[in-house]
Design a protein around this nucleic acid. Structure first.
Lengths: 227, 227, 227, 227
DNA sequence: TATGAATGAGACTTCATTCAT
DNA sequence: GATGAATGAAGTCTCATTCAT
């Protein structure tokens, strides 16, 4: 994963502790509070990053709106950037989960139109839940000029790789390079159109989602002729 | 135009001044120098905004790399944001020019495949020349929470409107709303894929451009059946 | 003593408690643990103050390295500065003990060279065991701008006074002022050279100790002609 | 030199500019003001570092007492530590100047007592002018754990090396190692006693200086028998 | 009593912008 | 007009100390 930063430890520690069976029940409330705070911070940060951008968002603003003192924020995240990273990993994890079922064995048998329908809906669901997705990863890439190899792969391809693998399985005559490009394009295009839809009202959003389905269907038909 | 900001005045003033009075030839070299400086500033700013983001770029860095004193920068731009706005208008103007010929009367007679080919190539050319396009408009939208109505329309639709108008003319059975959505989608998708291609090597870029053409052809075919 | 600070109470309380009531044997292990913890804290603090300086050392760092929770540290020491003070008194006490035998009645009869030899060796032993001595007292003086009179005397003269008294006894023709100055100089010079020696390798340390003996012998010879 | 930090550039630039013949007399006042400010900053910093220690001194306190805004301070010094370094180089330079004349050819012919007298007086003068000398170099050494080789030599030996060279010339039978140790000891001892004297009143200071002369005379006599 | 999460004042530093020269 | 030193508000982060558990 791209995020072996310090928060990883912190955040994971919390998570791990939590699943540690609460040996000391007295501990529970504190952990619950911590988890709640981390969630609060990430939620507020997500909104502010979206509204004001990463640099435009101050740690104090995040803390204030999350209703905790700044010091507490730094108890969970060593850095401002760690918050960004935490959002990044969170997104990646959730993205993976959302798409997991769409790439199972049974999905291979779905008609293309059904597959497209479900993929777009999954994206819709995901990006609607995480509108800051794009801002976060754009800033994340900017914030890491060094060793951008592994990171970049991880970040920017994410599910694109899974998608590519799935496409190759679905149509084995497809070259690996071809699949990768297609996967990447699907991800970028759908992501962008979701982003676009977020700026409009509900009617606009629905229209965009419909168009996205048409767009993707007609495109994928080129490679997966349903005949 | 979307840019009723302060630079508008400044920048225009320069331009206007230039064509206003040639009486004092002594002025000429200074004006030339000014124009050169403005061009330098915008060029440097474009690069830095792309690399470091808007907030990550300091006015001093722009001035230094443009080889002018900070004070001089503020002679041409009242604000840091004015530089962003100037880039925005510049982009819009150039974008308009690039696409003008593609939306002329004769373009209506082109086969769809030819039209798509040329549109994509025009985008390719444009975004390659202005890789900071996306960063600039994203920041621009963020920087203007108030009166975002007119501005937002202007900014984010730009050529999308022209495109929509063109599509309606090409296929008069298309509803206006439909055209608008399609135009918007074309712009966003092509823009994003260009952006994506910029991150890769030449081979990747070529591949993306080709795929973009396929994608757009198959999509527009839905509305403009070449039969 | 110079240390009427708060720790005095705490530290002494522990000590006093210890010899006060042995009635409740259940208390004993706790007291032993407390004493061990205080010792740990002081030992760690000594090292960290030396390496990082007083301000550069965090109470959390001390607690962590002493393998106790921060809260516990504050159970023994009300303040960060109290740790410094405790080290100060500890140094003074130990210094006193180390030099006690060198200022006994019999020491008066020793040849000067023998006396010098033993004094330097005693210093060597003491400062090697407590390399933070200088750092501690320098910071201690800095930390007490108020009522610096009594404290300063106490701190900075320590054994210098004992030494002066001893010198006067050894050579009653010496004026009291003279003795005080001499005592102070001996202490400062030997202390500094020990400090200097601590920065080098063993060979360097030995060389410095030897030179210190020569230096002190030749100096004291001026006042205690062995003839 | 040990100080190739950023200030070096800044400070030197000023100095260099100054000797640049003031080609543009208009520039002069600005430079004069800058120099004055740098001097102010260093003077205030010297005092505060002495009183409060390096960490105990805030950059804002320095700026406030130097009667300039914080921002201006950072125009001359990139770092808080750069101020420390500037003081360090300043001390080293001045120290060198003060002792230059004492290590000339003619000094070889002086009787030992005269030499000692002058050396001690020079030290007296120097340390009285720069009471923060010790604090500065102690903190400087602490602040540079890495590559402490060259730095440490430079810092801590400074004139000790010059002194050693001089001693060898004065008594060629002295081994180089021996000279180095002696030089170092003289520097440390005299430095410490000066430091000690600074804490007392004028009478105390005079007494210490006198004792220092006696101490050094009797010590150096061991190696430079005036017979 | 023991613990360590919580607190928030305050430290260092940056940078958009101004204005005297 | 041109310059760049000067300004100080504001941002990120630390840490001594407390207190609920």
């Amino acid at each position: 994963m791209f995020c072996q930063g310090e928060i990883e430890k912190k955040v994971e520690k919390k998570t791990v502790d939590h699943s540690q069976k609460e040996s000391k029940t007295r501990r529970k409330p504190q952990q619950a509070r911590s988890q709640e705070r981390v969630r609060q911070i990430l939620q507020v940060a997500e909104r502010l990053f979206l509204e004001l951008g990463y640099e435009g968002t101050t740690t104090r603003a995040i803390a204030t709106q999350a209703q905790i003192p700044v010091g507490s924020l730094y108890q969970f995240f060593p850095d401002k950037i760690a918050i960004l990273q935490a959002l990044g990993t969170q997104y990646l994890e959730q993205e993976y989960q959302v798409f997991a079922e769409l790439h199972g064995e049974e999905a291979l048998t779905w008609p293309l139109s059904v597959y497209v329908e479900r993929v777009i809906d999954a994206f819709d669901q995901f990006y609607t839940a995480h509108p800051a997705y794009r801002v976060v990863f754009e800033q994340l890439r900017r914030s890491m000029p060094e060793d951008s190899d592994a990171i970049d792969e991880e970040i920017s391809q994410g599910i694109a790789q899974d998608l590519a693998a799935f496409l190759t399985r679905k149509n084995p005559t497809l070259a690996a390079d071809q699949s990768k490009i297609i996967g990447r394009i699907v991800v970028e295009v759908v992501g962008t159109l979701q982003w676009l839809s977020l700026g409009g009202d509900r009617g606009f959003q629905g229209a965009i989602v419909e168009e996205t389905k048409k767009l993707m269907s007609s495109y994928l038909n080129l490679y997966f002729d349903p005949s």
